[in-house]
Simulated scan of single mutants.
Amino acid sequence: MTSPYGLRGRAAIVTGASRGIGLAVAEELCRAGARVCVTARDADAVGRVAERLGGVALAGSVADPAHLRAVTELALREFGRIDLVVNNAATNQPYGPLMDVDPDRWRAAFTVNVEAALRLAQYAWHGWMGEHGGAIVNVCTEGADHVGPHVGAYGTSKAALLHLTRQLAGELAPGVRVNSVSPGLVRTEMARFVWEDSEDELGAGLPLGRIGRPEDVARAVVWLASDAAEWITGADLLVDGGTRVRPRAGPATPCTTVCAPAHRTAAAETRVGAVSTPSQAPPSPRRPSPGSGGPEASEMTAEAFAGNGPWAASPAARDHPRLRARAGPPLDGRDYHLPGA
């Protein structure tokens, strides 16, 4: 089945494309007719993706500006153009209270989650888009708008990515559109430890009745990249199964026991006669002491923390057996993940 969003003849760069959401995005772009240049740190995996999709690949880290420049040059050399950029690679480290965060690891998070997206946009702009136009889509997270325990570095950097999206949209218009997609909990390998023992229960707590699939996010990305969204820029599209609209009353389930976002709680008011007084904020979720809870940092994915308030800050997330500290090295030994990988 061909995609209704025709991208035939266009060329795209997708980061973090060896698996998960990035892979699904690359596949959906190809289905729409685009040619893809994919990048990830796993050389064998990303090479197989490129071969299967008839594209090109270059392995490396998005934290390295030289790699991003080389990816841009490869796409221009092979395709002669760069019409689309999808910034998907990201990190959720460092994991823990901000008062304990190492400054170097904090900077590393912003290098991957924010600076890399800017660098690739710059290279694509100077190499092609500045003169010919195009579209950029940044993969963020539903949790960027919330406060959650132990995910301060991740949430702050993703909030910065959201602002960068809007800033670039303003600066690069009208020739280049810049938008973002924010996924909720998605069924990926790297998020398996969150959903594998409770997928039905987690999905039942969402208005749309299931957790997400990589292709759900991929279709949103391709739509924003296509001419079907030609009058949309500076927007963030939530792809979360209705996380923010689920009921807050009634029997609690792992996905309905939620904490109100901090900015909404602070703004809530009750009317007493003609006087407006702040309402009492709900109690904050119990924060585990260092080392007593939370996943191995590099095991947690963007999807797992999507909805830092609605899910990660809930008792369900706090007490989830797979979110407790695990012994041994991270599953893949990496310092950062590719969202949905």
Rank of each mutant, 00 (worst) to 15 (best):
L172G: 03
H337G: 10
W125C: 06
N308C: 12
R324P: 02
E196H: 12
S180V: 00
M129H: 02
D319I: 00
V245H: 10
R77Y: 03
Y154V: 13
P278S: 08
I13M: 11
G9Y: 07
Q280C: 08
A57C: 02
N113R: 04
S61M: 06
P261N: 12
S276K: 09
D332F: 15
C30T: 14
E78F: 04
G33A: 09
A116V: 08
A312E: 03
A341P: 15
L331C: 05
P290W: 08
H163P: 02
A32W: 03
Q122C: 13
L323A: 12
R41H: 09
R41V: 07
T270C: 04
N138A: 01
A173T: 11
C259W: 14
V139I: 15
C30S: 10
S226C: 06
W106Y: 14
L98G: 04
P247D: 11
A327K: 07
A159E: 09
V114W: 00
D227N: 13
V56C: 08
L185G: 06
E299D: 15
T91C: 02
I82L: 05
E189A: 11
P315G: 07
R31I: 00
P251T: 11
G33C: 07
P254I: 07
A66F: 02
A325C: 11
A317Y: 15
R105S: 14
L331Y: 10
A267V: 12
W106K: 05
T253I: 03
P330G: 11
R119V: 12
P183F: 01
R48Q: 14
S182H: 14
T141R: 04
P330T: 13
W195I: 04
L23Q: 07
E196G: 03
E201C: 01
A11S: 15
A34K: 02
L68T: 04
W106A: 07
P247Y: 05
A312W: 14
E230L: 10
S284K: 08
D104M: 06
E73T: 03
A124W: 01
R107G: 14
A75G: 06
L238D: 05
A108L: 09
W231N: 11
L29W: 05
N92I: 15
H320P: 05
E142N: 07
D102H: 06
T256N: 02
Y95Q: 02
R248P: 01
T156F: 00
A89K: 00
D145V: 15
G328H: 02
C37A: 15
G152F: 00
G16Q: 02
F110A: 02
G143C: 04
T243I: 11
L338F: 08
A204C: 06
G294W: 08
A304L: 12
G234R: 01
D240A: 14
A235S: 12
G33N: 09
L338Q: 11
A109R: 04
G20N: 00
G80I: 06
M190K: 09
D236V: 15
E196A: 14
R213G: 05
A24L: 03
A312L: 12
R35Q: 08
P310F: 12
S314A: 15
Y95A: 05
W311K: 10
V275H: 10
H126T: 15
A306M: 00
P315F: 08
P330R: 06
M190F: 06
H126G: 10
D200R: 13
I82M: 03
R166S: 11
T256F: 00
